[in-house]
Computed example of a mutant assay.
Amino acid sequence: MTDTITEAAELGAAELVEVYRSMRTIRVFEERVHAEFATGDIPGFVHLYAGEEASAVGVCAHLDDRDSIASTHRGHGHCIAKGVDVKAMMAEIFGRRSGACNGKGGSMHIADLSKGMLGANGIVGGGPPLICGTALAGKLAGNGAVSVAFFGDGASNQGTTLEAMNLASVWNLPAVFVAENNGYAEATASTWSVAADNIADRAAGFGMPGVIVDGFDFFAVHEAAGEAVARAREGGGPTLIEVKLTRYYGHFEGDQQTYRGDEVARARERTDCLARFRARVCESGQVAAAELDRVDGEVAALVDEAVTEARAAAKPTEADLHTDVYVAY
């Protein structure tokens, strides 16, 4: 592999700005949802992705609308990285009819098939089998489409995930499995619950490459994902990527996090993916700090508008109960 400095040089200034915009949007969106949830106006559960931005953006930067991704209960970041409309997402989280799923899915079930977003998923390990289906469809269509499953360290122990990886290899599918190892399955440490030292080590058992990357480094994720996606598009089969990172908030909003020490504070101070990205591209002269400051302002305004519009939007009515139950072909 080339080093991350070379990888940075391969991305133009405009591309780097859009990468930053996507990561900053995820961060601001999640911080705002954290604040809004505390008011009691957001129904259901919320699981925030803040701190993990480099993973979703580093992978999805290689994808387009023909490609599909399957997400997890912690799916806001994946949605934004894949291009789902931010205002539609916020409305969905508030349970409004203008939401991405007409206010019926909420935080854990945001989907947008027009963007190849198969959906966030409340089932642990629910995503990997789904991408075997879309990857097979892409293979049969011969359109170069690739399917990606994001899952956590808890889902790495689920039979659905292991069976999906085996099937992807047996059928030589254009699939990429991305294990986002934030160290905990809810409150259970992966060092205790995962038998292998690294989730990526399991790839050998399924006859596919396994790669471990630093989830605080966008460029490391981008490079590994680029190789995996290119391999899949060219008929080389699936890859397992393990991204090691830290989530900044609890497993869910309201989690007291008694199982963690000062690791979040250390991550925010020393390895934050946004801070590292900004420092690298500004110090290299590829992007001016003022340009990123402009993006910060635009993102803040967008999220403000998303919340204002979501709060003002109508909620589903009783008449909506019987819609969206069946798909008409």
Rank of each mutant, 00 (worst) to 15 (best):
A137R: 14
G105Y: 15
F151K: 07
D112L: 12
N102K: 15
A100T: 15
G116N: 06
F206M: 03
C101L: 01
I93W: 11
G105V: 13
I80D: 10
G183Y: 01
S190V: 13
F177V: 03
G116F: 12
V176D: 03
N181Q: 12
Q158C: 11
V146C: 05
G122V: 07
A91M: 15
V170S: 04
R96C: 02
G215Y: 01
Y184I: 06
I131Y: 02
A203I: 06
V194K: 05
M89A: 04
A187T: 13
D85R: 05
R97C: 03
A220L: 07
I110S: 12
N102G: 08
P174H: 10
N198A: 13
S98R: 15
H109K: 13
E180Y: 08
C79R: 01
K82A: 05
M108L: 15
A149M: 06
V124S: 01
F216Y: 11
V176Q: 02
I80P: 14
N157Y: 06
A175C: 05
T188K: 05
D214C: 03
A189L: 03
E180A: 00
G127A: 10
S107Y: 14
D112P: 09
T191R: 15
M117W: 00
N198C: 11
N166Y: 08
N121T: 02
S114D: 15
A220E: 09
V124A: 08
A155N: 07
E186L: 13
D85H: 01
V211D: 00
G183N: 11
D217A: 07
G126V: 00
F151N: 06
P128C: 08
V213R: 01
A155H: 02
V84F: 00
